[in-house]
Simulated scan of single mutants.
Amino acid sequence: MMNNKISVREVLVEDAKALLQIIPIIDKETEFTLRGEGEFRLSLHEEESFIRNILAEPRSVMFVASCNDNIVGSLGFRGNNLTRYKHTGEFGMGILKQYWGQGIGTMLIEHLLSWSEAHDIRKINLKVVETNIRAIKLYERFGFEIEGVQKNEVKIADQYYNLLSMGKFI
């Protein structure tokens, strides 16, 4: 995979079809997503509408990561419009498993941090399952800190797991 050309950019409405193809795969490949396998059910029209809403919202953004011009992951950030919370927002991301370990998560977060500074976002939050050590280490490398624990918040199969709230003040 040394010849792979990886890039990150803001999402386009035209990316909806490719995202609809990879999101269910990501959900199937890892137990760390919000959804379980088969729970993502947006139509092409609904996904296009979702992207249009993100593009129209000045405090929200979505980035897609591509490898050789094929979308292989994404990061979505939802900002807050309430006056007292306008400086904050929360993100989540997913990457196809075959592309893990290639720096894509790092690139997505770097783009988010740069975008956040330019859009007056000063606090970035996320939630992560306590057993997702790879992701936690990635977030910690960028200065995210564990700020709270939601006990037994996630049920995977018959096991309950804590959900960690992490944040970074820019």
Rank of each mutant, 00 (worst) to 15 (best):
I133C: 08
W100C: 05
S49E: 07
L108M: 05
R78Y: 02
K97F: 04
M93D: 02
W100H: 11
V64W: 00
G101M: 13
A135M: 09
S49Y: 00
K123T: 13
S114W: 00
G89F: 03
I121W: 01
I124K: 06
M62E: 05
F91G: 03
V72P: 02
Q102S: 13
G101I: 15
E57Y: 10
Q98F: 04
L112P: 08
A65D: 01
G105W: 06
F63P: 00
R52C: 00
L44C: 12
S66Q: 08
G103F: 06
W100V: 13
A135P: 03
I133W: 08
T83P: 10
L44G: 05
V128G: 08
L126K: 12
N125H: 13
D120M: 11
P58I: 10
H111E: 11
I54H: 04
I104R: 03
I51L: 02
F63T: 06
K86I: 15
T83K: 14
F50C: 00
F91M: 13
N132S: 06
N70S: 10
E47K: 13
Q98M: 12
I136H: 12
Y99P: 06
L126R: 10
I136E: 08
G94E: 01
G73P: 01
Y85H: 12
R78M: 04
N68M: 12
F50Y: 01
T106W: 11
T83I: 15
A56F: 06
N132E: 05
S66H: 01
Y85E: 15
E110P: 10
N81Y: 13
R134L: 08
H111S: 08
V64R: 00
H45M: 14
M62I: 07
K137D: 08
L126A: 10
L96R: 08
I121Y: 04
E46K: 12
Y99T: 07
I51N: 02
P58T: 13
L108T: 05
M107D: 01
E90C: 04
G92T: 09
R59I: 11
N80E: 14
H111N: 14
R78N: 04
V64H: 00
W115Q: 10
A56V: 06
R122I: 05
A65Y: 01
L113Q: 04
D120W: 12
Y85D: 14
E117R: 12
N68L: 12
S114E: 06
R84Q: 13
Y99V: 13
L126W: 14
P58N: 09
F91Q: 09
V128S: 08
H111L: 04
H111P: 03
N125P: 05
S74R: 10
G103R: 12
